[in-house]
Amino acid sequence: MKIAIASGKGGTGKTTIATNMAVAIAREGRDVTYIDCDVEEPNGHIFLKPKIREQYDATVLVPHVDLNKCTLCGDCSAACEFNAIAVLGKTVEVFPSICHSCGGCSDVCPENAIVDIPRTIGHISHGDGMGVQFYEGRLNVGEAISPPVTKALRRLDTDSEVLIIDAPPGTSCPVIEAISGTDYVILVTEPTPFGLNDLKLAVGMVQEIGLPHGVVINRSDIGDGKTEEFCHRQNLDILMTIPFERRVAEAYSRGEMMSDVNSEYERRFWELYCSIAEKVSS
């Protein structure tokens, strides 16, 4: 069972829900893996406090030009849709940060002067914390293209019964990479105009790629009733509502779990998981 936690708007509580649900599942004796796919700003480690057991590089392939073979014909730069390779004077310049690793340049080079070499753009950590298997992808600062790190994470072989995937905010390519192939997407929102606007975009996204989904309304008492109205109108399941509690916000700020301040939440997150498991299996 693969469950992704996503949201259009940032800061609505994705990581809070993902980590609390993972721990609640683990405490029921289930084998659960948490994967932090917010590779630009991963925060799950702050809450799960994992012991990291292994770490490896996330790499992409970029072209390397052998200037002894190169005749400066320019076929490579003509083939590149991303302007990532160019013949400049008597040399060929590669711009690795905008390269999409498609292999187009090495494919068209008539002299076989281009080979693909790996370039590290981030790393992946694996460990465990609070009874949960933990994976995290982390993009190196200054790198622009994050989806390859997410792709590497999603390709991992994990035999856990439950996978919890913590997605980045937004509705564009890094999010798609994180949530594709999951069984269910939890969309986290808050009942404010910004939250609702971004929820609509997020619902459009999961509908476009055709994944079952439901909504968790966090800080459910801070705004107005329009988010609930929207969910009812669109026949979206409201899986859980979480009222604002200052002591929960304070605990969050210190990197603590919700169940640390209010033990009721362990049961509520287990029930959240059970309700999703039921929807997926039916």
Binding site: G142, E143, A144, S146, P169
Partner: peptide, 10 residues
């Protein structure tokens, strides 16, 4: 600006 540190932020 957008959240994160990747492409749209840069």
């Amino acid at each position: 600006g957008p959240p994160g540190i990747g492409c749209p932020v840069i």
